[in-house]
Amino acid sequence: MAVPLGAFIAVSAVLFFIGTAGVLVRRNAVVILMSVELMLNATNLALVAFSRRFASIDERGSVFVVFIFVVAAAEVAVGLAIILSAYRNRPTVDVDEIRQMKG
């Protein structure tokens, strides 16, 4: 039997939830970045699923996904640059220890 759309959406949802949990719970900045990628993947999955289910001539959902790829890549690059910069300042990537913005 074919896989119902709801299943893909369910998977996407769970993955998104996992990613959110990771962002909020892990201390290491790089791991947080990884969790963000999980979230992005979840959305990609949902978009492609909808796009393929309600396929129209131009598959706009998938087009959007392609652009999300681009943005995600750029974001990882810049995010890591920031993390490395911060690491140079104080040799930690622990987000709980970076509190200079207090007040």
Partner: peptide, 17 residues
């Protein structure tokens, strides 16, 4: 209100969520 500015980035992420 100043006490909301903890400086901990994780808290800010939590606020976004």
């Amino acid at each position: 209100l100043r006490r909301a500015q903890t400086g901990i980035v994780g808290n800010y992420a939590l606020t976004i969520v």
